[in-house]
Design a protein around this nucleic acid. Sequence first.
DNA 1: AATGAATGAGGGTTCATTCAT
DNA 2: TATGAATGAACCCTCATTCAT
Lengths: 215, 215, 215, 215
Amino acid sequence: MAGRLGGVAGAGKRAKARPNVTRERILAESARVFNRRGYDATTLDDIARALGVTKAALYYYVENKEDVLYQCHTKALDLATDAVQTALAQTPAPDEQLRIVFRRYIEGMTDQLAGAVVLLYEGALSPALNRRILDRRDAYERMLRGIVEDGIARGIFVPCDSKLVVFAILGALNWIPRWYDAAGPRAATDIATSFAEFFVRGLSTNPSSTTLLRP
Amino acid sequence: MAGRLGGVAGAGKRAKARPNVTRERILAESARVFNRRGYDATTLDDIARALGVTKAALYYYVENKEDVLYQCHTKALDLATDAVQTALAQTPAPDEQLRIVFRRYIEGMTDQLAGAVVLLYEGALSPALNRRILDRRDAYERMLRGIVEDGIARGIFVPCDSKLVVFAILGALNWIPRWYDAAGPRAATDIATSFAEFFVRGLSTNPSSTTLLRP
Amino acid sequence: MAGRLGGVAGAGKRAKARPNVTRERILAESARVFNRRGYDATTLDDIARALGVTKAALYYYVENKEDVLYQCHTKALDLATDAVQTALAQTPAPDEQLRIVFRRYIEGMTDQLAGAVVLLYEGALSPALNRRILDRRDAYERMLRGIVEDGIARGIFVPCDSKLVVFAILGALNWIPRWYDAAGPRAATDIATSFAEFFVRGLSTNPSSTTLLRP
Amino acid sequence: MAGRLGGVAGAGKRAKARPNVTRERILAESARVFNRRGYDATTLDDIARALGVTKAALYYYVENKEDVLYQCHTKALDLATDAVQTALAQTPAPDEQLRIVFRRYIEGMTDQLAGAVVLLYEGALSPALNRRILDRRDAYERMLRGIVEDGIARGIFVPCDSKLVVFAILGALNWIPRWYDAAGPRAATDIATSFAEFFVRGLSTNPSSTTLLRP
DNA sequence: AATGAATGAGGGTTCATTCAT
DNA sequence: TATGAATGAACCCTCATTCAT
């Protein structure tokens, strides 16, 4: 019902004056507002206004409000998962992997997505969609735990309850959109570095070898 | 579960038992539901049902829905502030202070309050109440930053951006009610200990001297 | 269900410390509030507060809110009807009759009743009670028209549409509670006199013989 | 009763006819219902039903229920004020001015506006709006008093308490919507004439020269 | 591609009324 | 007599959603 990208028809290079509204922008703007006001408190009118369109116009691009939330979560999970996979592919060292995970996720979240939606309250999505998101989130958490446990096994990380540690880390990450200010003094990169060093240090058996949080 | 009189006279229909609704219970139950479903998605009917009363009955004890939210936040901030003050009073060692902060807050949050409400979305409270909560939250953050900076000054903690570190810690703490399961395998005390060791280790200049996360 | 006055039992002269609340006071206070805020906007709590009692306590004296309104109307109609009957009994002169009607009604309304309720909106009373009030009101209007028509027949009043004239008079009377201020500069008697002279003059064939409005 | 197109083409389901809801009609219909049932007893559903729309549809045109009441009062005051200004512009004779005031106001109220709302109970409007209406009402009363006092000064009207006279007149005018029946035997013009003659006669020093109420 | 207009469902809040004490 | 506590019905208002244009 939405299929575009055909290539043939609508081509004309830049002829048609691309619409001011794209699915991209809708999701970015929605995520921003969801993070600030919360999903339920956010009206489609809020989103429409942020985009400079009518509420009714949104329905041309979007199935319904739930769909928007689902897409937001999907994007955030794509980003998170990609971060982990990139990390695993780039280095075998668990501490280094964590650093990459943090950096890619935080930078993606703050710069590209304008703060992905992270809170998924019970009942916000229909059971089916909810399950899909929770499954992917579980998978993501398992991957992170895998890194931690790998580090413990190799003696690079101290023994610990990997589940709790990952919860702590995710809590810290998910909290970022609630205080991050794009116009503030802290660049996304700085945040990413600080968080990475802090958490890695908390896990490392030999933290003296890690970079200081702020040299 | 409520019946008082053995069963002779007032048996049958008489199991009514004076409604056990108090402001206390309302806040506890509300916090629980708010944390699960989110403030906006939570109906006063939801809360009433959880308490076994009618929605209208709530208004006998409570001003508003907003009032309920405000009281929840107040309770959480009381708990958090008390935790810090207790810590400061009990020991001069910053690392030990952090441990106390974690333990008291987490145990209070999980055991007593059934998970205090931590998310405060923009616009959920009227400007006046919102400001009051944000001010107290700021004060709380400043206290935590004080501990961290004190540790840095004394060479017990590594130099770092105290603001970011406190954000990370708060994120982790605020996330707890979203995954904590009173019936789960992890006791509040275990969680508190694990978090404390993880974060203190992340900050300590000489982490080898700290207890291992899992001995 | 209310019967008191028995005489025997509750006698003891002034023993029982007569209750602070009487049906009398309830009606007077209710009428006052009804006139200010309107019947529908007035809560039983408003009335109770004005009497210094609990809302529930009112139900000891009163059937329900509708009952209060009905009694108020009844009182006002008693007063209005009495005024006319007194006038008819005291003098055969229509102009003098009108003067008496005005004086007795206005003084009764302002002094005794604290402003009887005069507006009866459709649907405020159940059909049965509503009919009873409307019937009495019609009878009252007919009596007033009778005086006017008698005056016309005798050549004392100018020919006119008596129905319209009575509507005008009633409108003026019913409006009084909306602006009357017991603490204001105009005594009820003055108002009564002014109104009487104004309306009688408007009707009289030989107004020069009537007292001036303000001698 | 609504059918426009004879029945040929657009017969069947097509009798929809573009919803004839305008702010104009809403106010007229609201005033009518307010006058009959009273403001507080009137449901937005009542008004919506009278207009053949859903309650929610009203909110497309109107801010509030309060807003509707406020607009009604504004319209009535516009009408009343215009009437006075027209009168002052058309003739210097106070008695003639009053006649014009009555005629224009009554005809406007009954014919155009379906009976403007006149009762403003305490608390029905927010303090700010209430003040605005009361101020305008005061101004209107002052204008009427001005006419009366001018007449007295010129010896055309008998000396009297102009404030009380104006109250009497306004009471009579405000009462009209409570008994006026568009389908009844009395045309608005007749009412206006009768009232005008009656009141002017009540004030005139030389009433014999005025037209009889009903020749 | 976009909008004005309309709707149904639901949520917060108030209030008359009841009842046990 | 009087009250605290509770309830059901109703009302105002919002909002996601639809549809004709």
